[in-house]
Design a protein around this nucleic acid. Sequence first.
DNA 1: TCTAGCACTCTATTTTATCGAGTGCTAATT
DNA 2: AATTAGCACTCGATAAAATAGAGTGCTAGA
Lengths: 346, 346
Amino acid sequence: MLDQRKSAILQALVNEFITTAQPVGSSHIKTDTALDVSTATIRTELSQLEKEGYLVKPHTSAGRIPSDKGYRYFVDHLTKPGSLGPAQKQEVKHFFASSHAAIEALLQNTSKLLSRMTNNVGVVIGSLPDTTIIKAVQLLYSSEFSATLIFILSSADVEKIEINFLNHITESDIEKLSALLSSKSINIPLKSFLTSIPVQPENLEFEPMLRDIENAFKAYYSPSNELNDIKSSHLYVDGTSHIAESFEAIETVKNILEILEQQFVIVSLLRDVLDRGLSVSIGSENGLESLANCSLVVTPYTVDGTTVGSIGILGPTRMKYSEALATVAIIGNELSERLSKEGQTN
Amino acid sequence: MLDQRKSAILQALVNEFITTAQPVGSSHIKTDTALDVSTATIRTELSQLEKEGYLVKPHTSAGRIPSDKGYRYFVDHLTKPGSLGPAQKQEVKHFFASSHAAIEALLQNTSKLLSRMTNNVGVVIGSLPDTTIIKAVQLLYSSEFSATLIFILSSADVEKIEINFLNHITESDIEKLSALLSSKSINIPLKSFLTSIPVQPENLEFEPMLRDIENAFKAYYSPSNELNDIKSSHLYVDGTSHIAESFEAIETVKNILEILEQQFVIVSLLRDVLDRGLSVSIGSENGLESLANCSLVVTPYTVDGTTVGSIGILGPTRMKYSEALATVAIIGNELSERLSKEGQTN
DNA sequence: TCTAGCACTCTATTTTATCGAGTGCTAATT
DNA sequence: AATTAGCACTCGATAAAATAGAGTGCTAGA
């Protein structure tokens, strides 16, 4: 824990660095703070803060830059939750009040909103396979040898799986099968879908088709499939252009874009946060070389009290945390509310 | 039309520039080509090519760079279709042979494949609202006041629309409505959906609900909604990190990323190509300041002979056109075949 | 414990010099 | 008429040298 003066200095330094992106020297801090001490005193303080790992010097005769530890302290102890201006609150309210016919569009637009309001990359992760429950099942006839299996999930997502049948099927077969599946599988977790349709005496005639469905389902959710996470929990990203604004080095930009393309990486980062609530992951805490200069501000969102996904922003470590935290928090809340209200998904 | 020697010079110059990204001087061209003339002769040719608009000089004492017109000539007259190596053909075959349970995943992965094989941005556009036909309709009960309307389209896409009813509804209402819609709307174009359900004497009791559906549908496809194009024709983009490799200036990268985020811009660019077949759009031909240094190689794809969308790559004007054309063409073919076979979508 | 003062460090910026790939022109050659 | 050798000239790129100034760390005195 830092004493009052060190705190004030660290806070001023971080704030200054966030806005200017330049190393901060002792004299700047003197003007920024109300501290009535000389720059020499500030310098000794700075050098101690550096010794303790909160600050870093790019080179001998430069000002200081916050280290990840410095940012961490800043976020944990020196950042008030922050509140949005009325105009911005209005923007969020208006966004969620306006209609978004499809859930996918809502989530996609939510990532856009996050991005636009914070000038960072907006990220939204929908549906968590472990917790989602089947709210409706429907099998739709496509052709003599294929049909589409559709799940509507508690997370408000829709999953659809193409089924190819080995044997000839009829529309009436499919209808009966569909009814059968509905009767057995509603309100159980998606991951238990298979066990919910054991072969019973009365549906022996459907056994081969059920076998086909089983195979398609297994293939779709095969854990060996790296894309599985993406398929079963959609990721919506927007505002990638902001990272080109935030970083000078084109190499850095490239690396971050690559990470964003490997969606499962982001997905797992966002998942970590589910039981932690609103939280910040700073630089090296992300555990990824490529994201060493990035921070994530993430919060889970809920549907009817159950956590179903998370939203967040990805930006440079020198982001406006207070603003970011406030924005992510409010959008998370409004999204939860929007998804829960009107019983749309129950 | 350029004479033999000018052609050879232009061709050599473009090829050299594509690989080195440096302005090309007369001596390089002498070594690159089999032409048995002096550099002085080449210089006069170059200066004529420049006068005719095929080449550009960054500054007085530099080599030349192809202009958009130069690339255009190169693509139109000096580029053979190009063919992929066996390993690459294999990669494409293998990709389309392996199973992709959901169409969305297939299209998303196709953009990834395009990107990986060409080291550019891969783009896939699915479903064209004007031509898509409803293959199945289903209304699913969600709650007392809401349901989900699902269309399976000939493009293999699924559209779903949340309906909020003004009045209390029951599951049985929804079932009947669903059957009614199915009977009236299958095999008609999506855009004619509304006119396909006129109120008939026998379904007067559903009139208020049909009204609600009508409103939701109208809202969803409202032409005033700029997002409409995106919603009704999904866009899949992958490999954005490659643009950070292709361009030096971070500003350029930012601008291109921004364009990619405004999906409807890309969608309209890709649409232009539908009746032109495999084609290339170079630099200023794209009509967008931000894409002045980019080219698009695009081809439509079909399902059972009907064009339903297009795929392509976005890269720097100095891309390997021959390779790009070959790759886009083969992937387009395989995708069409894959979507058509097995009658999955009929 | 704080502060004024000062020597020292080191990057960033500017200035100057030099290099060399490439051009355009001209006069001679084929 | 086309080609080519020769040469002066241009101009960005790279390197080297000079300068400025923001910032530090240390010390001695208040």
